[in-house]
Amino acid sequence: MPAHCSFDYAIVRVVPRVEREEFVNAGVVLFCLEQDFLGARVELDRTRLRALFPDVDLPLVEEHLAALSRVAAGGEGSGPIGRLSLRERFHWLVAPRSTVIQVGPVHSGTCVDPARALEKLLDRMVRQPAPPAP
């Protein structure tokens, strides 16, 4: 049986009106040192975001969210931050910001497969369940 390893994660939020402290969860960043894994997945619910802020600049928000995924992946097109170590990139990704794109507090967990844990967190924290049938 594969061994469990620890990981740290944070939820990526879109905060269209910082002063109102309303947000939409839009992604997850997960780091597992033991398995050399850093991943960021984003799925923006445009309808929910527009409900909070009808005039939001969706293309700009989506570009900033995509940048988080590029930095997590590293390599070509990720800029100077993308050339840092996995640990350094994770800490950069979860650093506090006062902009429209923010990251919640860092939490910990354990898993066997960090990519699967990232997907489960995305399901639980970002994706909205279908409304119950009438």
Rank of each mutant, 00 (worst) to 15 (best):
residue 133 A to C: 11
residue 119 E to Q: 13
residue 25 N to E: 10
residue 112 V to M: 14
residue 37 F to S: 03
residue 127 R to W: 07
residue 30 L to Q: 03
residue 39 G to W: 04
residue 128 Q to I: 11
residue 29 V to C: 03
residue 13 R to P: 11
residue 75 G to C: 13
residue 46 R to L: 07
residue 29 V to Y: 00
residue 31 F to C: 06
residue 62 E to V: 02
residue 100 V to K: 09
residue 128 Q to D: 09
residue 72 A to C: 01
residue 4 H to G: 12
residue 49 L to N: 11
residue 112 V to R: 15
residue 85 S to L: 07
residue 48 R to V: 07
residue 3 A to H: 10
residue 50 R to N: 07
residue 73 A to N: 14
residue 75 G to P: 13
residue 13 R to S: 13
residue 51 A to S: 15
residue 116 R to W: 14
residue 94 V to R: 02
residue 10 A to R: 00
residue 13 R to D: 13
residue 26 A to H: 00
residue 93 L to C: 08
residue 71 V to G: 04
residue 52 L to Y: 03
residue 45 D to A: 11
residue 134 P to A: 13
residue 54 P to H: 00
residue 54 P to A: 03
residue 18 V to Q: 03
residue 89 R to W: 08
residue 49 L to W: 11
residue 94 V to D: 01
residue 33 L to E: 12
residue 112 V to E: 15
residue 58 L to K: 02
residue 127 R to S: 10
residue 20 R to Q: 14
residue 23 F to A: 12
residue 78 S to A: 11
residue 97 R to D: 00
residue 3 A to E: 12
residue 60 L to T: 10
residue 26 A to K: 00
residue 53 F to L: 06
residue 121 L to K: 02
residue 2 P to C: 12
residue 88 E to M: 01
residue 109 G to V: 10
residue 130 A to Y: 08
residue 49 L to P: 09
residue 33 L to H: 12
residue 10 A to M: 02
residue 39 G to N: 07
residue 17 R to T: 15
residue 98 S to N: 15
residue 106 V to T: 09
residue 49 L to G: 11
residue 80 P to V: 11
residue 44 L to V: 08
residue 113 D to V: 15
residue 86 L to I: 03
residue 68 L to Q: 01
residue 85 S to D: 08
residue 58 L to S: 06
residue 30 L to V: 06
residue 130 A to T: 09
residue 76 E to Q: 10
residue 57 D to T: 05
residue 56 V to H: 01
residue 31 F to I: 06
residue 20 R to I: 10
residue 121 L to Q: 02
residue 123 D to C: 14
residue 74 G to T: 10
residue 51 A to M: 14
residue 115 A to F: 12
residue 105 P to N: 10
residue 108 S to Q: 14
residue 92 W to A: 12
residue 26 A to S: 05
residue 122 L to R: 04
residue 106 V to D: 01
residue 103 V to K: 00
residue 74 G to E: 08
residue 34 E to Q: 09
residue 85 S to A: 09
residue 23 F to G: 06
residue 102 Q to K: 07
residue 1 M to F: 15
residue 64 H to G: 07
residue 4 H to V: 14
residue 80 P to A: 13
residue 133 A to Q: 13
residue 112 V to G: 14
residue 74 G to V: 09
residue 13 R to M: 14
residue 5 C to D: 04
residue 46 R to F: 04
residue 105 P to V: 14
residue 128 Q to C: 09
residue 66 A to L: 02
residue 6 S to L: 12
residue 121 L to G: 01
residue 110 T to P: 13
residue 130 A to S: 11
residue 89 R to A: 08
residue 34 E to K: 07
residue 129 P to N: 06
residue 93 L to N: 07
residue 127 R to E: 09
residue 58 L to N: 05
residue 63 E to W: 10
residue 100 V to L: 13
residue 131 P to W: 08
residue 43 E to A: 15
residue 54 P to Y: 00
residue 62 E to P: 02
residue 19 E to S: 12
residue 91 H to T: 03
residue 91 H to G: 01
residue 98 S to C: 12
residue 18 V to L: 08
residue 79 G to F: 01
residue 77 G to A: 02
residue 6 S to M: 11
residue 18 V to P: 01
